[in-house]
Design a protein around this nucleic acid. Sequence first.
DNA 1: CTGAAAGCGCTAACAG
DNA 2: CTGTTAGCGCTTTCAG
Lengths: 339, 339
Amino acid sequence: MSKNRITSAQVAERAGVSQSAVSRTFTPGASASRKTAEKVRKAAAELGYRPNVLARAMVSGKSRIIGLVVAYLENQFYPEALEKLSNQLQQRGYHLLIFMAEQSAGDIDPVVEEILDYQVDGIIAASVALSSELSARCRDVGVPLVLFNRSQDDPNMSAVTSDNYAGGRKVAEFLLAAGHRKIGHIAGWAGASTQRDREAGFISVLAEAGVGLHARAEGDFQMEKAAQATRAIFASDPPDAIFVANDHMALAVMDTLRFEMGLKVPQDVSVVGFDDVPAAGWAAYNLTTVRQPANRMVANTVDILLDQIENDNSETRRIAIDGPLILRGSAKIPKRWST
Amino acid sequence: MSKNRITSAQVAERAGVSQSAVSRTFTPGASASRKTAEKVRKAAAELGYRPNVLARAMVSGKSRIIGLVVAYLENQFYPEALEKLSNQLQQRGYHLLIFMAEQSAGDIDPVVEEILDYQVDGIIAASVALSSELSARCRDVGVPLVLFNRSQDDPNMSAVTSDNYAGGRKVAEFLLAAGHRKIGHIAGWAGASTQRDREAGFISVLAEAGVGLHARAEGDFQMEKAAQATRAIFASDPPDAIFVANDHMALAVMDTLRFEMGLKVPQDVSVVGFDDVPAAGWAAYNLTTVRQPANRMVANTVDILLDQIENDNSETRRIAIDGPLILRGSAKIPKRWST
DNA sequence: CTGAAAGCGCTAACAG
DNA sequence: CTGTTAGCGCTTTCAG
């Protein structure tokens, strides 16, 4: 009862042509006469034939599948990116094979090894770090790899991020212009380049203005920890503004501020996030934040990856896309402030 | 520079055994002497050999990949489910190949055809409907299919959902017990079984109590449309309670009620949702809702699918898992109410 | 237990 | 343009 799968040979027989003729009519860049192609298509349609992608992959060396490593989908930025990534890839004839990495940073190397077993044409690593041995291994077997929303110093890894450093600077300039001087920062996981870059940009502007960080705590990119960080920071001498390393944490920070500590945002304290996830735009939060241009980040990621795959272009590229500060209601807006 | 892929033949040569010996030591249920296996493993390790999953799939007929059709990841319920699904499958040696279906309900049949091209071992269709021809086709080619969070009458399709009908009943009982009599409903997309079941259960209790629906509007499972539906319903003679077909819409409903119409929740109007997505638990919403037990839904989905794959068990099963009403602050709580 | 041989379904030279 | 012929890398009889 099972396995009623039609093969190209069966189609060939019915169409009265050779098996390779069938293959040709289903292979984009092949040569087949109109007549043959028609006969084949007809027979194929009658039989319900469809080429076996795996068999094709075996011989052609191209599986048309892209491995995606992703850590946790709780932060809305990732499902959004995943959806766009999948859509754009699908449009170009590729599909995503998902590999969940342990949140606990740790070794994603074995995960990548496993991906390689599937003969993927390329790999996208979202928000995870790879050892340089592993990236070397990918290069060895000729599988392009691009980091999404994370960057590494390794000159052999392509990466696309938003311009986190510039984003951090924008936040600081904005907060300073609004008159804030007691400014706190709730950081994400220190191992993430996004965290480091955002904070570095942020701090640099503060330093230029001769303003020090009034308070700092780590939220590890997790809501619960961000809430704890908030409590710690506000235990004494509270800041009048906070830059939270990403929106996901910022939502928890706002909830803690408002519902646990009875503070008003932005009257008592300004809050600024990073990412511009959907929830940041919801009325309940109305969070001022730096937008990561997901569409362009994804488009660039796909372009780089497919360029490497299809044109054997091995030059590694790293792109940081500038994202605007989105002014909403969670932070005081400086007088005379133009985007 | 590319294609430094080791094959079993190379390992065999180095280990001084036959290629089949290598295959056997890497095939779970195969017979190889301890000595041989050791030599092989050693050589494999030195060479960095890993079996080619695709080649294995070709001959064995098992690709260890599961196709997942999913429509849109904006509703937090899905990323959550996707993550759990992927993790559980990964643990059992399978991986998810993602196929995004057009949100516009329409034809996902071509998508499924495409999935079949990849020789997947099984298919999970999340929140989408399939034609029965398509499900028949899957059966034809021996690929098990299970519907996730959606059910269809087709007796040939396995499906796992929460008990949406019972959930709808719980909401109605709860609202009635709290004294509400002017009860409205904001529905999702009418084509979804979840919508129909939730509403049917809800209405049935109301009817038993001789209470009619005070108002009704469709939100199509989209936030913006849910906001519009809210405006429509509250344009005149507003209800004192609303059952929103899912949390995703309920969040938008609450925002509209509070920030656009200046109403208090639950003082002016009680709001109850369905799903218990993460955001429902955030302090800003604190939404009373019916929980869909994602963990158990996923576990059941995986069990059914793998049972069909690995044991050739073709019996179709449909499971509806009961989920509790989670009492939070968005709806008045009846006196003397025990879970 | 082990090697040799036969393919899985398809693409890619290779001659015609 | 077309058919024939090799394989892709691996699992699986089939003899030994």
